[in-house]
Design a protein around this nucleic acid. Structure first.
Lengths: 233, 233
DNA sequence: AGGCACAGCTTTGCATGCATTGCAAGGTTG
DNA sequence: CAACCTTGCAATGCATGCAAAGCTGTGCCT
């Protein structure tokens, strides 16, 4: 059995990956119309594969599509951010509950080791993007222990949507000299007791704590960088 | 002010809606390759809008795309069904928790009334599709009380994916002469106490009870209707 | 007999083009 | 002067066509 040409990525998938990264890093202004011709030129492809990729983003909620008018970057209202954080709570709490039942001590050791190893970098890191990657890695690793591909992919999509917000939040958190490492270690500790419910509640408290701050961070960040016309939707 | 042409649905959205319905009702055999030319002819459109719609389904996980080989109906392994049910638990439990806090008594009255009104139809209905619609309506109404659009859309996608399985399950449930109405009413009753945690646990128990039976139902249904080549993925 | 290679046919991948529609600027009228 | 209509441009919507890649069936070789 040959590996086929899995390596020869097709244009649509390549464009999709680029667009998703652009969307996650807010290369498009919220509410802004996306010009297909210009974007296809910028990406070195034609409009057909670009539109196919954009339709994937529509299904994922990164982009809105209005018949006859085209594609628009989806605005992130404060309400929607709250909804996304609640969805995140739903998925991560269930994932950690499952993970508590499934995970072997060695799995938890591995995650805790990763936390310890990144702790120094966490303290000294000045790049908020990297900060966010470290934080996100913990949550994704933990969710992976649930061994549920659906939960993992749902969570990955949510993280892509709130990444901008979380970056702003973590930047402010670090500015206060604190880190999330010890909070993460506490969650692992609860998981070791084998009480899935308690672990789930610990995760809930952790995320909702950040949601509070994120709501404030986004207000500042939005004012700073963009002027999102409060989408009437 | 004209209504614009919001009513004039564009071809891509129309095709997408049809495809999603076809996918939910398993008009494509699991693992089967989707022939673009034939399908576009059948739908009365050309391949371009069809491919755009298919790319939305790719993002939602209904369809797999392999570069150079085309689109394939995604197979539903037993493992994946379990994962989807767990994802459903995650979302519905959080939604019911939020709903318990938000919902006014009148909201719960409305849902309970709908349950009572459909109870007779539930008992006498012989169409499993209709049976499933009634059951699904309750869960979606309840989730809507969370007032979280993200949770609602995630749940709708999951329901579309497991609809076939649930239809088989509910058919068998009804054959035993029982219904889910009283289970649903019990969940509402717990919500009235205002204890979100308890309501969440009641919902969890309800779904996981059905998940047990669904796993068995799918084994039978798969054997009956399709011969899904256990996708090596 | 089994497997490999090649040829042809089918299907996908994507660029292009044209019709249609939205959008905006300028002109006209009350 | 403001509101409405008109007209031109630009961008979308989608069908089509061609090149490239996959699939299949046949015949040859081992």
């Amino acid at each position: 059995m040959k590996p086929l040409n899995q390596n020869t990525e097709d244009a649509v998938s390549a464009i999709y990956a680029q667009l998703r990264e652009m969307a996650a890093s807010f290369a498009f202004k919220p509410g802004e119309r996306i010009n297909e011709s210009a974007l296809s030129r910028a990406l070195g492809a034609s409009r057909t594969p670009l539109r196919e990729a954009l339709n994937r983003l529509v299904a994922e909620g990164f982009v809105d599509f209005h018949a006859g008018r085209g594609f628009f970057c989806r605005a992130l209202s404060e309400t929607r951010i709250q909804h996304l954080y609640d969805a995140r709570v739903a998925i991560e709490c269930e994932a950690v509950r499952q993970a508590t039942q499934r995970a072997r001590p060695a799995d938890l050791d591995a995650i805790e080791l990763a936390l310890d190893q990144s702790h120094d970098e966490y303290q000294t890191c000045t790049n908020p993007i990297r900060l966010m990657e470290l934080d996100e890695a913990f949550h994704m690793q933990l969710t992976a222990l649930s061994e549920n591909a659906e939960l993992q992919s749902l969570l990955a999509t949510i993280y892509d949507k709130i990444r901008f917000v979380r970056t702003a939040d973590l930047r402010r958190l670090q500015a206060t000299g604190r880190s999330t490492t010890h909070r993460h270690k506490r969650i692992i500790a609860v998981m070791r007791t084998g009480d899935g419910m308690a672990a789930s509640e610990a995760m809930r408290a952790h995320i909702q704590d950040r949601a509070q701050h994120a709501a404030e961070a986004v207000r500042l960040a939005f004012a700073d960088i963009y002027a999102p016309k409060e989408a009437s939707e």
